[in-house]
Nucleic acid binder design. Structure first.
Lengths: 138, 138
DNA sequence: CTTGCTTCTCTAGTGGCTAGAGGAAGTAGC
DNA sequence: GCTACTTCCTCTAGCCACTAGAGAAGCAAG
C-alpha cells in the first residue's frame, strides 16, 4: 500500500532528489514519515507526480503546474483558465519551432558553404561574425 | 576611437552587465581602463562581441563559443572541428524541433478535446495525468 | 556647484534541478 | 547477533547564463 521514495521514483521516472525538491518547493505535499523518518507514498502521489512529470516534459513551468494542480483540485470551476494556460503554451511552442527552423536553415547554409578547408576559408566563422545586425529572434 | 562599455552595449545589443560577465568568465579579454577606472573598447571588441552574441542567438553554449573563438584565432588550422561543432548543433536542433512538433500535436489535441466546460470534464488535466508511460522525449 | 547620467564593484537571486558529504535506518545472509 | 550492503535522511553547494540591486565614484552640461 505505502512505499518509500525510491519506489515512487521508479514508478514515475522522477529522480529521488527531484521528488524531495518538489516537496521542498511545495509542489508535492509533505509526505508522512515512518518511525525511522522515511517518507511514505501511496497511489495518489504517483498520480500527482506523473501529472507533474508529464507537464514538465511538455515544457510547462513549475508555476503553470502549480496553477493546473490547483484547478484540478476544484473540479467545479471553469475550464477556461486551464484552456488559456495550454493555449499560451501552444503559442510559445509555435514561436520556438519557428525560431529553431530559421536557425536550422542558417546553420545548414553555413555548414554547406564551409569549404572543408582551413579556418581562414571557413564560412562558418565568417557567418557568425557577420550577422551583427540581424533582427534578434526569440 | 575608444569608447566606454555603454557604447559597446549599444553597438552590439548586449547588455552592460552581460559584457562584464563575459569578461569575468574570460570570454572577453580584460579591457584596458581609463584613469577613472572605466573600461575602454574598440572596433575589435565590437566584432568579437557580435560573434559571441550571434553564436548565442543560434543556441551555441559558452564553451562551444570559446572553442570557436580559439579556432578563429588560428586561421591556419583545420576547419573540421568548426564543422563538427556546427554539425552537432544541427543534430541537436533537429531533435528539439521534432520534440516540439510532437508536443504541439499533443497540446493541440488536448485543447481541442477540452469541452470548454468545467474542469471535471476538461480533457487537458486528464491528458496530463494519463500519459504516465509515454516514452520521454529529449 | 549641482544635477543627472554612466560606470564601478560586490553580493545575491533566478529556475530547476544535480552532486556530494556524512550519517542513520533497513535488509539479507551467515 | 554481526556484517555488509543498500536505501534513505539532511544539509550545503554547484550548475548555466545571466539579471537585479546596493552603494559609491566619475564625468558632462547648465
Amino acid at each position: 500500500m505505502k512505499f518509500p521514495i525510491g519506489e515512487l521514483s521508479r514508478q514515475t521516472a522522477v529522480k529521488v532528489p527531484t521528488i524531495r525538491y518538489y516537496e521542498q518547493i511545495g509542489l508535492l505535499p509533505e509526505a508522512p514519515r515512518t518511525e525511522g523518518n522515511r517518507r511514505l507514498y501511496g497511489k495518489s502521489e504517483v498520480d500527482r507526480l506523473n501529472f507533474i512529470r508529464h507537464s514538465r516534459e511538455l515544457g510547462f513551468e513549475i508555476d503553470d503546474i502549480r496553477e493546473l494542480l490547483a484547478m484540478a483540485a476544484q473540479p467545479q470551476s471553469s475550464c477556461h483558465q486551464v484552456d488559456s494556460i495550454a493555449n499560451n503554451h501552444l503559442i510559445e511552442i509555435d514561436r520556438r519551432i519557428a525560431s529553431l527552423t530559421a536557425l536550422k536553415a542558417e546553420l545548414s547554409r553555413m555548414v554547406d558553404e564551409c569549404g572543408h578547408g582551413r579556418v581562414c576559408d571557413c564560412r562558418i566563422i565568417e557567418a557568425l561574425a557577420d550577422h551583427s545586425h540581424c533582427r534578434s529572434e526569440h
